[in-house]
């Protein structure tokens, strides 16, 4: 069945991006065109320096779109103000390679931060949502643990819960399995796929990890700032 335009969470057309100006200008992305359907899990691959991270940060509203068009959930990102980008980021979930949990907050409090970014969410509601998200990632018995007392896999699962707890339009994950063993890596990706599908959340996952490619709905490969292949998972 053909995917309709309205089912696309991200639609990029003619996207170019560069760093520096004048002679120091270095183009990182060239004429990127892509669409990410709602609820899909897309893996973004490519060698170092191919532009994966730049593309991720542009789609994640962490950089300003300089040239071309990016529609995120129907909102144009080209020339968007910092305030608008900040607001849009509240509709996204992020998972980082090194989990980036706040060391002085418990697992539950870290996850609650993913809910409380939406102003006016009462504390008890955030607490319930956080506990439920941690339950979904299998950490209901670690709610009040500080990150320092969790294993690498557990930390990354907390990060997954934090990214998903606010029901985001899209989750952007940067090498989420790089520091994990094979079983933990498979667990984390399975969680992302299962929870994403259940909540109709789109996932864009940057990775070099071939162990998880079979979980992807589609695989995009970037080389020298250009998409060189698009394939099904």
């Amino acid at each position: 069945m053909a995917v309709q335009d309205g089912d696309m969470v991200v639609k990029a057309r003619g996207l170019n991006h560069w760093f520096g100006e004048g002679e120091a200008r270095k183009q990182a992305l060239f004429d990127i065109n892509l669409s990410l359907p709602r609820g899909s899990l897309t893996v973004l691959m490519g060698p170092s320096g191919s532009g994966k991270t730049t593309l991720l940060t542009l789609l994640g509203c962490l950089r300003t779109v300089q040239d071309g068009s990016v529609l995120l959930a129907g909102t144009e990102l080209f020339d968007a103000s910092e305030a608008k980008l900040t607001k849009l980021r509240q509709r996204l979930g992020f998972i980082f390679q090194s989990h980036n949990l706040h060391e002085s907050l418990t697992a539950l409090q870290n996850v609650m931060m993913g809910v409380q970014v939406h102003n006016g969410v009462p504390d008890d509601l955030a607490k319930r949502a956080g506990a439920r998200a941690l339950d979904l990632v299998g950490l209901s018995d670690r709610l009040h643990y500080l990150p320092g007392n969790l294993s690498g896999g557990q930390k990354q699962r907390v990060a997954v819960a934090r990214a998903l707890v606010g029901n985001p339009e899209m989750v952007l994950a940067d090498e989420p399995t790089a520091a994990l063993d094979k079983d933990s890596a498979a667990d984390v990706v399975d969680l992302l796929k299962r929870l994403g599908a259940a909540r109709n959340t789109t996932t864009l996952l940057v990775t070099h990890d071939n162990r998880i490619l079979d979980r992807a709905d589609s695989i995009l490969t970037l080389e020298d700032g250009r998409i060189v292949s698009v394939s099904g998972g």
Binding site: G60, L62, T86, F96, H102, V117
Partner: peptide, 11 residues
Amino acid sequence: EYATFKAMGYG
């Protein structure tokens, strides 16, 4: 951690 919160949409 602050950068993470910024990424999450905290102003």
